[in-house]
Nucleic acid binder design. Structure first.
Lengths: 230, 230
DNA sequence: AAGAATTGCCACAGCTTTGCCACAGTTTAA
DNA sequence: TTAAACTGTGGCAAAGCTGTGGCAATTCTT
């Protein structure tokens, strides 16, 4: 689905320019002459990314930024004519994801917008890379190497596959059936207790090498990975 | 757990400076004089964030960036003495999450490092769309976690399913038969008083964690959720 | 072909869940 | 006011779930 971007800047020329570039990249853009209008629209319908000028009539960009961050984790870029260290640092610290100073290159803004969306994509697991980490455990799914604190240890094929699946879905609890379907590739012909067996052996091996990541069982459902050690 | 940061720069002074700042912020830092060493170390043990200079002896920072991004979605910041639009754009486009030009303020680097970790947290922290809210109670149907004021407590499978159903239909009262049909999946073979039992236990657990949401009984009909505390 | 590793299954023990019951308290309706 | 219907509570036992060690069939190595 097309990404929705809100843009607030009191300079109409800049609005038009950015709007044009973003639209050309295939984004859906709505621009506002001040922060209050943008905030109102955002509360009505949240955008995927927000670009805020700092100096605007009405509420300034930084305040809008904190207000949005308070109720949403949408992506935020701050742009400002004020270029000094303090401004940049407070801008970023206040909750924005990036800070650019005017005059800026529209192309660079495009690149940074796309970088933020890419990061979101990476984090929310659209793509699965083959180097995985959980606590002091890391697994290279390509070379099939598993290491704790850098020292390698052995996992059998099913153990590895199960572990990789859990790590790729470490934010959720995973049901036994889901594991059978995605790790065993067939949910028939295999007792769902088979998952327990592999987990049993995995737990033993992980404990033996003092791995901080643990496989927790979710009663009546399945398992969930915990990185351990906060 | 402490975040691990790898840093590659051929200038020893800069390495020392950044290292000091990052360490002061509580990060665990390892610095390398060139990109090849960093890459080797990364493959051995991945870091949570990587800071790369572009111009270094051996493989340049941009190549290291693409190689890392190829197999991992770790955070990457590129720093460079070359300050022109093309460099910045290609740097970001190649897969890094941020690009800073030398000389840069160490404080700003710190702010940007923390902003990246904050974004990671926002993206991966339970705030997915399967989240249900009622008063100070939060239930994440995906992770099967129930929280009151942020602290987690346990629900059994039926309790969770019943609670989710009530929250999904919080605007109206739900009859016992409807619950049996949609939560138990069979309305035969189970006394309709079974719902009362689960509600009984749910109420006890909710009260124990000072949950503002309450399950009210609708006389002669069923139950209804009230968020409590308006 | 023999041995080793892997892996699914079983049985058992211990724990958790959950439906049901009896009884007391409450609400509704005649 | 009284009887009938309904709900809250504590306890209980059956059913269900998980962890464990052992075992046997299959696959992989040598």
């Amino acid at each position: 689905m097309r990404k929705l971007i809100y843009l607030a800047d009191d300079d109409e020329n800049i609005r038009g320019l950015i709007n044009m570039f973003l639209s050309n990249e295939g984004f859906e853009v709505r621009s506002f002459a001040n922060g209050d209008d943008l905030l109102a629209a955002f509360l009505q319908k949240p955008a995927d990314l927000v670009i805020l000028d700092i100096m605007m009539p009405g509420t300034d960009g930084l305040s809008v930024c904190t207000q949005i961050r308070n109720c949403s984790n949408t992506l935020i870029i701050i742009v400002s004519a004020r270029d000094n260290e303090i401004d940049r640092i407070t801008g970023i610290t206040l909750g924005s994801d990036d800070y650019m100073t005017k005059p800026f290159s529209p192309m660079e803004l495009m690149a940074r917008v796309k970088a933020l969306f890419r990061r979101l994509e990476l984090d929310t697991g659209g793509t699965s890379k083959h180097i995985l980490t959980a606590g002091n455990l890391n697994i290279n799914a390509a070379t099939r190497e598993a290491k704790v604190d850098g020292s390698q240890f052995d996992l059998t094929p099913t153990e590895l596959a199960l572990m990789v699946y859990l790590m790729q879905n470490s934010t959720r609890a995973v049901s036994r059936d889901e594991l059978l379907k995605n790790v065993w590739k067939f949910d028939f012909e295999v007792d769902s207790r088979a998952t327990d067996d592999v987990v049993k052996r995995l737990r033993k091996k992980l404990a033996a090498v003092r791995c901080s990541a643990k496989i927790e069982s979710v009663w009546g459902f399945g398992f969930k990975l915990s990185e351990g050690g906060e």
